[in-house]
Design a binder for these strands. Sequence first.
RNA 1: GGCGCGUUGGCGGAGCAGUUACGCAGCGGUCUGCAAAACCGCGUAGACGGGUGCAACUCCCGUACGUGCCUCCA
Length: 490
Amino acid sequence: MPLRIYNTASRKLEIFSPATDKSVSLYTCGPTVYDYPHIGNWASFIYWDTLVRVLKFSGYNVTRVMNLTDVGHLVSDADDGEDKLEKGARREGKSAWEIADFYIADFKSGMKSLNLIQPEYLARATDYIPQQLELIRQLKAGGYTYQISDGIYFDTSKFSRYSDFARLDLKSQKAGARVKLNTEKHRPWDFALWKFTEPGKKRDMEWETPIDILAIKPEQYSNPIMGFPGWHLECSAIAMSLLGKTIDIHTGGIDHIPIHHTNEIAQSESATKQPFAHYWLHNNHLKINNSKVSKSLGNGYTLQDIESHGFSPMDLRMFILQSQYTSEGNFTFDNLVAAKNRLNNWQNYAALRHQIHDRLTDDASKTDLEKFVVSTATIGAIRDALWQNLNTPKALSIIDDALSGLEEVDLDTISWSSLNQLLEAADELLGLQLLSSTPDIDDEAKQLIIRRERAREAKDWPQSDTLRDQLLKMNVVVKDTSHGPVWSRQ
RNA sequence: GGCGCGUUGGCGGAGCAGUUACGCAGCGGUCUGCAAAACCGCGUAGACGGGUGCAACUCCCGUACGUGCCUCCA
């Protein structure tokens, strides 16, 4: 069974096959670092992290780039309004550079707490200004640009396939119906490659516009014209400079199909005459309380909000994995509780491995057939589920099935190594930290459990209950099963 | 106005043309010193109306409702 993924470019489920045998180049549109990401943003990054995990698990050598948009993303994608970074700076009384640094640090720490694998390259747009200017240069040379009073624009009429990717009928789009149109643009969907700093203004982030990309003669050029890159440009420039002209997989949110990715394709392919990406994957949006996440509705919960409600980042991760990336999830705190409980149950199963080990006296005397073995076929089945367009809910259900058998049987009969293999594979593929979140209990707690068993044998219930309370204070819960006591963490 | 998507049991959420998804929550029972767990069972899901099939939650058409994009947003 091959790895299949849904390619937005073809609108079909396709068998994945990278250009180079066992290497995969992967580009993910990263955050605009002007504010805390909300859980919808994180959902996207959790899904793409799962993709990376699946590829690595399948033996691919993955080189992944994620950009950090720290300049040029305007309040409106239609090349109007203020730069988000500059706006954030004004809001917080800092410079745009300080804003970017702060939210980049926050993003990295969020990635860590959600156990997202760090991409090989986390690239700041402002670190790639020369590459972006070079791309403009190439496009200008090819006749794809024009200049108007506020910047240099991409002429979409020169790229005949412009509307193919999003399958939009541009004529029927009511572009600018609700925003003031830039009347100088030749077409509403032409987009800025480089914007000039407003005359008489000084931006925190601005660069001198090289004269050779300007449509003026050198003798007319007196004072430097300052400017900054358009939002779409960075992704093409960063991706191509780090991964080459054609990349295997490009991922991003579903909202990026009609504008951002359409524009990336237009400018990249106009410059190189080669396909920009073979596979385009898009995650659907997470709804919150059945409505969309929107800054204006104020429902964009952050990771900090989740934690202040008493949930862990892994609870959120479990919640996100419970629905498939192409479907529209719905977040409520009740649903998060369900995910938390499920994860907690898994952690209790994971903790059994310490208790099997403790009792392991004559492991060799029992054959695998006599033991409860989590078969390697289970791990294969998990992988197969994920290979089916990252069907994470299916993968979770397979793990549920495998784990739920464990508590019915005598612990002595469970194969320690096969349980460990399952947990390792689950962690590798889903990143839920089942192993690291369930360390063994200390010797003191173990002694208390033994003493409690003695008390129970002597039918000394008050003593037994006292010991149980003592363990509870150490966050260890003891349950008396028909096969003896089993502990778990509270 | 244009283009698109969705509608599964209390909630979340998959696959599949014919066999229990799965999870969380709930109810009843067994077991049990108590508690918890575990186990067994229960609630008879598939918006509505047609159509094609021996057979449809699963394919096709229509209707209703919801929702997304064409501003911002993963």
